[in-house]
Every structure is written in C-alpha cells, then in structure tokens.
Amino acid sequence: MKIFTKKNGVYALCGTAVGFINGMLGAGGGMLAVPILKKCGMDQKSAHTNAVAVILPITIVSAVMYILKDYVSLKDAYIYIPTGVIGSLIGTAAIRKISAKWLSLIFSGFMIYAGIRLLIK
C-alpha cells in the first residue's frame, strides 16, 4: 500500500482543518468532520461513526496541550465521565436505530439557541 497518495494527502489536509477547529474551540471537530467524510464517499451513519475515530487522537493531543498550558486539570473533568461513558454506550447502541433526522433537527435548534446566548453573553 502506497502511503503518499493524492487521496491520503486530501484526507490529511481535511484533517488539519478539523483539528484546527477542534484544538481552537475544544469541540466541534466532529461536527465538521461528518460532512467532510460524507464528501469522501461515506454514507450518513458511517460518517458519524468514523468522525468519532478521527477526533479521538486529535482530542488526546489537544487535551495534553490544554493541561500543559494550565487551562484545565484532570480533577475538573472527572465528575462528568461516569455518566458520559454510560451515554456513550447508549449512543453507540442507538446510532443504527434512531431517527438521525429528528435528532439532528432538535440538536441543531439547540445549537443555534446556545450560539446566540454565547454571542450576547
């Protein structure tokens, strides 16, 4: 398998953009990765599944840098993790069954609301 193909170069460039947003804003990389992965030929559900895999290494590197820069420490985060892991398992089980249409509509509405709140804060 050749490594330096044009396709891999395109993936890496797209990844750089996703990583940039995710590192800068601490979130949002996945939401950006989903439409890009769809353009690369994945269907809706695969794009969501693979977006999580793409974001994982990016998140690990970002988290280490945030700790080194003293923005956050491990003790700030741990209380959210137990229910988060439960939620994660629910999510993985539900993704192939749930109506992605309604979920994304509801969540989009919530995002717009929160965005406005943050801008006028």
């Binding site: 979130a27 996945g30 693979n50 977006a51 229910t83 999510g91 993704i95 749930i98 979920l103």
Partner: peptide, 9 residues
C-alpha cells in the same frame, strides 16, 4: 456522551 458517541457534536 450520547451525542458525542454518535458524532453529533
């Protein structure tokens, strides 16, 4: 966690 695992932000 639910939304994160589904890549929904």
């Amino acid at each position: 966690g639910v939304l994160g695992a589904m890549g929904l932000g």
